[in-house]
């Protein structure tokens, strides 16, 4: 029983982390219809900020990571993504691939192409006793952060003018513009939030693995993409569900997979969602899209 409860908490924590990543991908997708490969680098660069600021107090380093995530996301939007804002999905995807490549290799060239280890605060590698369960503090932090972020995002989207503008832009960008929504502002805000979410995810990943590498964003961004796809494109709630499903799947497979298959866990985790897409091309929560043009 405790084993199962333990597994479920592990699953929920990993799912929460994945949900944070997926929300970041979704936000950008909703306001400009772009699947952003560079979201993985928005995760990787803040992680490197932690590495570079390792000597400073932890809170300062985390602040630096957040600033890095927001800064790089806003900068990438301004420099690279604004010129292709009206291009088709493929062109935007390839553009974001280019941005990802540049950022990855700038880190390779300036820091190192190999992974570097990062010291983590001891309190995060300890566990707390909750009833009969011993829960790692990092998982508690992840769950709390996910809850706080979801709450804050909900408040922003549904209780503020900016949120209303973002939702309007997500529904019909051109119409929203005609009604006075400032496109550049809404998109920049979406990127900033997306960068902040990625930074949080990046910090959590470093706390978990204790290391950084230039390609560390690759698997998370795929996780984010797949979560978005199975959650139904462009739905925040869908992204959360997609993230939780993927996290739970990955975590439970890790716990219950026979030893010989454990190295292939990622292969299995990434294959199963494709099966979902074949049965439901519109994702778990997505509505069937109508033929709007005819």
């Amino acid at each position: 029983m405790t084993d199962l409860a333990q597994s479920l908490i592990d699953a929920l924590a990993l799912g929460g982390l994945y949900a944070l990543i997926a929300i970041g991908v979704t936000l950008v997708y909703t306001v400009m219809g772009m699947m952003n490969f560079a979201q993985g680098e928005f995760i990787m660069l803040p992680a490197y900020a932690l590495y570079v600021l390792a000597g400073l107090p932890f809170a300062v380093a985390v602040g630096g990571a957040l600033a890095t995530g927001i800064g790089i996301a806003v900068l990438a939007e301004r420099v690279a993504f604004r010129p292709v804002r009206n291009a088709d999905l493929s062109a935007q995807l390839v553009t974001s691939l280019a941005v990802a490549t540049v950022l990855q290799n700038v880190v390779s060239a300036t820091v190192d192409a190999r992974a570097q280890s990062v010291a983590t605060p001891r309190v995060l590698s300890e566990s707390s006793q909750i009833g009969a369960l011993s829960v790692p503090n990092l998982e508690i932090l992840t769950l709390v952060l996910t809850a706080v972020v979801l709450g804050a995002l909900g408040w922003l989207l549904y209780r503020t003018r900016t949120g209303l503008e973002m939702r309007a832009a997500a529904e019909n960008f051109e119409m929203a513009r005609l009604l006075g929504v400032r496109a550049n502002r809404v998109i920049a805000i979406a990127f900033a939030i997306s960068g902040a979410l990625a930074a949080i995810a990046g910090v959590l990943i470093v706390m978990q693995t204790g290391q950084v590498s230039p390609t560390m964003g690759l698997t998370p961004v795929l996780v984010g993409f797949i979560a978005v796809v199975i959650g139904g494109f462009g739905r925040i709630f869908g992204a959360v569900v997609g993230g939780l499903v993927l996290g739970a799947l990955s975590s439970l497979l890790g716990a219950y997979l026979p030893d010989g298959l454990v190295p292939f866990r990622d292969a299995i985790v990434f294959s199963l969602p494709v099966a979902i897409l074949i049965v439901r091309p519109q994702g778990l929560l997505g509505a069937a899209t109508g033929e709007a043009r005819i």
Partner: peptide, 12 residues
């Protein structure tokens, strides 16, 4: 990584 940066910039 220089070559890859160049590649990325060309693609961009």
């Amino acid at each position: 990584g220089l070559a890859a940066i160049g590649l990325g910039l060309i693609l961009l």
